[in-house]
Design a protein around this nucleic acid. Structure first.
Length: 492
RNA sequence: CGGGGUGUAGCGCAGUUGGCAGCGCGCCACGUUCGGGACGUGGAGGCCGGAAGUUCGAGUCUUCUCACCCCGACCA
């Protein structure tokens, strides 16, 4: 009965069921009493906090500061930018009243007398409220650039939700910057997509492709949307972060101008960029297996867990002392470690549990090890075990963590690279789309062709890659000239 | 918004032609165990999603409702 207790649906049976099972069983999140909204549980939140801490540092290292803007946006703000309202109007939560009253028949009802003069929208994103604010902050070129980020929750009333991948409320950060020149704003948008790509690859161990979105996949209100696209184990793409060059669209909508060095009034240039708790989904789906979560050491809440194996209190006391020593040494090196000597669970149970939770390195110490001055080291990524000396174990573990980090990245990268397929005809593309993966193909650049591909294959142009694929050719659908290949895939 | 499903113990579920509301896990107590999810004995735990109806009698039948989940169209 041992392994069945995990009750994880194998990936081969149903990838989406596996994902759901894993999120629940690994204690990352659960569905809440509110439709489409999740509860992020402590273990899942610990991973998010690690992501946040690292990203926040990277934002600060690139000159940004944090601020906070309101949850509510006056309805009129949203309609100032035509494309923007078009993009978000269908999925907004609207606040219409500000008071309840007790119901004579029990409970409470909305007080009809307390209707708001102007409805408030729960932010689906904050461009409008922020640019309305920036108007007051900017008069001169000396006030620029403004490089603000905020960590916040936003609400998009999605019809169908999936834990972390798409929830009605989600956590994210949104950077909103204001610049004096077009060039500077474009540079900022590109800088931030590079920050995201570096974070994904170095911390999440998720390889991503940087690119530009086609017009129809672009953020509502943007001139250009830069994206990082990751590939999940089932061959579907996941947009993992976006950075937008907004041009002067929001400056126009909110009348944000500055006086330049020559004394001439100009519209301000803008960017916005964000990543969300969706990254959790990317992290989970990129590395995990049928035994549970596999976490990259750089983001694992516990990088190491130590499990004592003992038959008597006396033995436990000896192990406690020796393991305690190792814990101190690991902590001194900045490694997060959990020593689990809880006596209400057996070692086998703990092994299975930490495997499910993706702890990168597990150390086990028992009577044999006490005698031999050894310890058993098990790595989550390969599920291999070996017994090593306790001498300098902390150095061994430190190196092993880096090796695991590199290994899971390489594994994900090899897989991703194996799933990029060049296709040169629409027939070939249609035949192979069910295989999954990225298809590198020529496209004539028109929305009509893009819409046709989506209609007929449910695949979308994920991005026009920033690097590589620049040779010219002929569109696989229309045969018209194309300047370079784009990546097409089915996506989450 | 279309299609499918599920609501019974903390969780996962069973409950036959309508007749004492059950099983597994978990939980509590005690003991034996402990190198890959241990076992024994005892124990606690329920408005059967909600409302109305049929009936001597409803978890079960009828009607109405509410909620959630899954698959599609829309999206980070």
């Amino acid at each position: 009965m041992a392994k069945e207790l995990k009750e994880l649906t194998p990936r081969s049976v149903s990838y989406s069921q596996w994902y759901q099972d894993l999120v629940i069983k690994a204690d990352l999140a659960e569905n809440s009493a509110v439709r489409g909204c999740m509860v992020i549980k402590p273990y899942g939140y610990a991973i998010w906090e690690k992501m946040q801490r690292q990203l926040d540092q990277m934002f600060k290292d690139t000159g940004h500061v944090n601020a906070y803007f309101p949850l509510f946006i006056p309805k009129s703000f949203l309609s100032r930018e035509a494309d923007h309202v078009e993009g978000f109007a269908k999925e907004c939560a609207v606040v219409t009243h500000y008071r309840l009253k007790t119901n004579p028949e029990g409970g409470v009802v909305v007080d009809p007398a307390a209707r708001l003069e102007e409805e408030l929208i729960v932010r689906p994103t904050s461009e409008t409220i922020i640019w309305n604010t920036y108007k007051n902050w900017i008069q001169s070129y000396r006030d620029l650039p403004i490089l603000c980020n905020q960590w916040a929750n936003v609400v998009r009333w999605e019809m169908r939700t999936r834990l972390f991948l798409r929830t009605a409320e989600f956590l994210w950060q949104e950077g909103h910057t204001a610049h004096a020149t077009r060039e500077e704003a474009i540079e900022e948008a590109q800088k931030m997509i590079n920050v995201y790509a570096r974070f994904a690859e170095e911390y999440m161990a998720v390889p991503v492709i940087k690119g530009v979105k086609s017009a129809s996949e672009r953020f509502a209100g943007a001139v250009d949307t830069y994206t990082i696209e990751a590939l999940m184990q089932d061959g579907k793409a996941l947009q993992s972060g976006t950075s937008h060059f907004l041009g002067q669209n929001f400056a126009k909508a909110f009348d944000v101008t500055f006086v330049n060095k020559e004394g001439v009034r100009e519209l301000v240039w803008a960017t916005s960029w964000g990543v969300s708790t969706r990254l959790m989904g990317a992290l989970i789906m990129s590395h995990s297996d049928d035994n549970g979560l596999v976490l990259p050491p750089h983001l694992a809440p516990y990088q190491v867990v130590i499990v004592p194996i003992y038959k008597s209190d006396e033995q436990l006391a000896q192990i406690n002392e020796k393991a305690g020593n190792i814990v101190e040494k690991l902590k001194a090196m900045g490694i997060s470690v959990k020593y689990d000597n809880a006596d209400n669970k057996k070692p086998g149970w703990k092994f299975s549990e930490y495997e499910l939770k993706g702890v990168p390195v597990r150390l086990a110490m028992g009577a044999r090890d006490l005698e031999n001055n050894t310890i058993e080291v098990a790595r989550r990524d390969t599920l291999t075990k070996e017994t090593v000396s306790c001498d300098n174990i902390e150095l061994y573990v430190r190196d092993l963590l880096e090796e695991i980090q590199a290994n899971i990245y390489k594994k994900a990268l090899d897989y991703r690279n194996s799933q990029i397929k060049e296709v040169n005809s629409y027939d070939e593309f249609k035949q192979r789309i069910d295989e999954g993966g990225f298809f590198a193909a020529h496209w004539d650049g028109t929305p009509e062709t893009e819409a046709l591909i989506k209609e007929e294959t449910k695949a979308t142009i994920r991005c026009i890659p920033l690097e590589g694929y620049k040779e010219s050719g002929k569109c696989i659908v229309t045969g018209k000239p194309s300047a370079g290949r784009v990546l097409i895939a089915r996506a989450y």
